[in-house]
């Protein structure tokens, strides 16, 4: 009799594969990695918030010093003068530190928008100028952007963004699939800091406005129009750089009283 088998053995199935449910595995991993990424983004953001104000404003200014306002087109000349006038009024009351200088720019764009960037450069679009009729309304928008500069928000946002991108790139490497899951969630967390900045800028802006004008009627004009046009963003708040307009308007109105 041969000592070789006459047929292949029947092997148990669960030795080379694990029997745990794949969904359970996935959820445990998701929660674990989520916590780690959350902590990482949080600490980087806090680091950026506290360290970037230590960068002297003059450095920021040097980078964008050569940025000159191009000549404003003829039809907008009047609007530009109004912008300059209101800007000067607000700037006087903004109580900036002595080394900070502000520059106002007019942008030929129909979309109502205003933003502040590195070096104290503030941009206001033609669309916003034609939408916001009252001087107090325009002053509130400008004061909001000045407040961003005052609190060093542009450099904070920039350094936070760069740091998060860098750390993510180092950790994830070419791990494509994890990248597509983790990067958006990291970005979403970082946006929370942006919303906190908006609230802070709103508060400071109201304080500036209170010093510049006697009557505060119409200071919320831009926010009111924006809310009427786009409506409340509701639950999608998590995905926005700016906080929910309705909540913001309530806060601003309270502060204005």
């Amino acid at each position: 009799m041969s000592n070789y088998p006459s047929e292949n053995p029947q092997l148990p199935e669960d030795i080379n594969i694990s029997t745990s449910h794949p969904l359970k595995d996935f959820l445990v991993l998701l929660v674990g990695v989520g916590c780690i990424v959350g902590l990482l983004v949080l600490s980087i953001s806090l680091l950026a918030t506290y360290l970037s104000p230590l960068v002297p404003f003059s450095w920021e200014h040097q980078v964008l010093e050569s940025w000159q306002q191009p000549a404003v087109d003829e039809p907008y000349q009047q609007e530009f003068e109004r912008l300059l006038r209101v800007f000067k009024l607000v700037e006087k009351q903004s109580e900036l530190e002595t080394d900070m200088t502000l520059h106002i720019h007019h942008m030929d764009s129909e979309i109502p928008n205003a933003f502040a960037t590195l070096g104290g450069h503030i941009f206001v679009t033609q669309g916003l100028l034609s939408q916001v009729q009252s001087d107090t309304g325009l002053a509130m928008v400008i004061a909001h952007e000045i407040a961003h500069v005052k609190h060093r928000h542009p450099i904070q946002a920039l350094s936070r963004g760069v740091l998060i991108q860098l750390v993510m790139a180092v950790i994830l490497g070419d791990n494509g699939m994890a990248n597509s899951l983790i990067s958006p969630s990291g970005t979403m967390l970082a946006l929370k800091f942006n919303r906190d900045m908006e609230y802070q800028a709103d508060e400071t802006a109201v304080a500036i406005i209170k010093r510049s004008f006697e009557t505060l009627d119409g200071a919320d004009e831009f926010f009111r129009i924006a809310l009427e046009e786009h409506g409340s963003s509701g639950w999608s708040d998590v995905f926005q750089t700016h906080p929910d307009m309705a909540a913001r308007l309530v806060r601003i109105r309270q502060a204005l009283k």
């Binding site: 594969i17 694990s18 745990s20 595995d25 998701l30 674990g32 699939m177 994890a178």
Partner: peptide, 25 residues
Amino acid sequence: YFKVVVAGLRSLVGGRMTSYESLLD
């Protein structure tokens, strides 16, 4: 796609990649 995502997460934490084991088996 599910297996790839689970494995991608696993490669960050380290350990046994259970999602690929059944595939190779």
